[in-house]
Design a protein around this nucleic acid. Structure first.
Lengths: 385, 385
DNA sequence: TGAACTTCCGCCGAAGGTCGAACAAAGCCG
DNA sequence: CGGCTTTGTTCGACCTTCGGCGGAAGTTCA
């Protein structure tokens, strides 16, 4: 039995996380002998997973050879499917984007049409990046509805007609496919990209609807049925008259979602159809719209105040279409959360707008794929094969 | 860093979890050779961690020698400190209770007095069980307030005067001491004792106050500041007049806690001081009390409905003093949760009374200690020493 | 009852992995 | 230019693990 763990997968994890860039670092961190580390690194280099760069800076002796992930030869894809759009990002193994694209695409056209479109875009992006199809190792897909993560099958999604129980991964041959809810992958993208130092994060997406992705101990929390984070249908007080498409009334989404704000603006004589119209009105300085957005922030804050007490996150990130006017939204959210949550939970809590922006979902989906590929178990399997 | 699979610690984990009771089981589960397993088991036996029992049942050949945790020579303690009571359970390494006791004890007397009392009870219980003090390997303590788990220091607990930032573990020499919130240890006790098959569990304690312990992926979720699960101060709609000791109004605890129900009964001319009095009235068949308890269940259910959407647990366990009249409390909770939560989240959700009862906290605290001691890292350290 | 069969467990030589010492490489410093 | 420091590789010693073999301990069946 080895006194310390340190399989090839562990070594690669340290390299990919940036914890170690030289063989000496690895020896120090793992406690293994330098010769053993060299052997591991050699195996990783031989498999094309790691490469050496030019020598680094000397600290008084022979300069170490820097190690990093070998970014050629592999590719990963992150796919963000929304109700009306499709974004695909091709990434290398370090998470850098090689190429990306965006189209209008109705998810309601069904899985065969949509996935064929994705497949075509993948070929195009691979071409742009100059990599063969065989380089594609894994892909992640975020979809606007609940998914049984283990099988990659949508689970009674309300706005994805034709997708229920469709085995998405089987559509793509020879590549691992991970399918998850769009808000989950956005949370993952935001966490890995801008908040990697935190352990407990909530990502709140405020668009047409309202959803939440949960990062606990650095990992996505999906819950028992994969429906965790569905905060759009939490009840808010004082709006019993607002009916929701789910059949209940006073749902958060029915009073504070982009669609709800647009409807109320229309009632006030300001024609608005979607969250985008609301954003446009706010940016044009319309005070009615501004007031409604801020009020929506307060309502969202009321729900988040409960969740802060319950979950005790370090940071809440607000994204989605309406976060383009985040100053007003966040003002309402902060006001309510800091008033209604317990001091111990809010003392070190920060509530910030998304730093990753429109690409959070595609990036997060890609990261899901990369982390799956780089998991120690999978790497050990590859190296020992 | 992933631990090396098949270490002595992993072998012991399989034995303690009941996943393997023979050397053959271990070889099958770990994939290691039978001879290697024998060597591991020998080391564990030599260290007094595992013992062989008489042969088990034959499956057609030589019957295997059964293995189990060696329950002599070690002892673990679980301590449940409440506002006005102290329970101590002495357990062997398999989690069976060897001896236990209960006293009235005011936590407000301060850490020196209370912990000295605990220390004395420990000696007494060790005497009853016929084990020397040196057999005590670790202890867990549940306290009625927030704790910084890593250091074992209470963190501004409202009902524990004199305990703020007190380094509890240092009071006990030569033994590992883990300190956690009482609701957390109750959740752990309930999960390990009665719901070990589930991954995501919420334990709701309804007593004088209201709290919640969270089990996610089989582990306690404590949050960023260790204050997760503090649902007593979540706002419920329609009770703006109810002031709470936290300074806000309409807190769940202020309208549905045992103290709140007692106060309202008193207003109705039925003198009641505590949750215990409320239970007595309900058990005596008082319809006013029954109605209030059921209404409290509805209010708790309103909050839980939100948390079910957010967290998506498999099971909600209701415990605490008021759960002695759980049929009425649960009726209100179930009614609201199943009406207000999303079908996907409630479809496989069960809401049940505590199966572990009054001892959940002390048991959970002991289990916290045992699992700490049995963690693969700790066992490998012991075996390789 | 006894022989054949099955399963369990310890022993031992072979194979393979890890370690640390020794050595070579590469840059810094006086 | 020769010592000093740090890095990386080579190699034999050592240790662990593996798997076959044989003995142990029951079951099944004639």
């Amino acid at each position: 039995m080895t006194p310390q763990p340190g399989s090839a997968g562990d070594v690669l994890t340290l390299i990919s996380a940036g914890s170690a860039t030289t063989r000496s670092d690895l020896a120090r961190l793992t406690g293994l002998a330098r010769s053993t580390i060299s052997q591991r690194v050699d195996a990783l280099i031989e498999r094309g997973l790691v490469e050496e760069t030019e020598s680094g800076e000397s600290t008084g002796g022979r300069p170490p050879r820097q190690l990093r992930l070998h970014t050629e030869d592999h590719a990963f894809a992150g796919v963000d499917l929304g109700a009306t759009h499709c974004r695909v990002a091709l990434m290398d193994i370090s998470g850098d984007v090689l190429a990306e694209c965006e189209d209008s695409l109705l998810i309601g056209e069904g899985p065969d049409t949509v996935l064929a479109h994705v497949d075509q875009r993948l070929d195009q992006l691979l071409g742009e990046a100059g990599r063969p199809r065989s380089a594609l190792r894994a892909m992640g897909i975020g979809v606007p509805g609940p998914v049984e993560f283990a099988t990659g099958r949508p689970n009674n999604p309300p706005i994805m007609p034709g997708w229920n129980d469709y085995p998405v991964p089987e559509f793509f041959e020879g590549v691992s496919v991970l399918v998850d809810n769009d808000v989950n992958v956005m949370a993952l993208g935001e966490h890995r990209n801008a908040f990697a130092g935190t352990s407990h994060l909530l990502f709140v997406k405020v668009g047409t609807g309202i959803g939440c992705g949960i990062v606990a101990e650095g990992k996505l929390h999906r819950g028992a049925q994969g429906s965790a984070g569905d905060i759009g249908h939490i009840r808010v007080s004082g709006h019993e008259d607002a009916g929701c498409r789910c059949g209940n009334s006073a749902c958060l989404e029915a009073v504070a979602g982009g669609a709800a704000i647009a409807r109320r603006l229309t009632e006030l004589g300001l024609p608005a159809e979607s969250g985008g119209d609301v954003v446009a009105l706010v940016q044009a300085g319309n005070t009615q719209a501004l007031r409604l957005v801020r009020e929506a922030g307060r309502l969202i804050g009321e729900v988040l105040a409960s969740l802060v007490n319950f979950f005790n996150p370090e940071v809440i990130v607000v994204g989605g279409a309406l976060s383009r006017v985040h100053e007003h939204l966040l003002a309402g959210i902060r006001e309510t959360v800091y008033r209604r949550s317990l001091p111990l939970a809010t003392h070190h809590l920060s509530i910030t707008p998304s730093r990753t922006g429109i690409n959070a979902a595609a990036l997060g989906a890609g990261i899901l794929a990369i982390e799956h590929y780089l998991s120690p178990d999978n790497i050990n399997r590859i190296v020992n094969a």
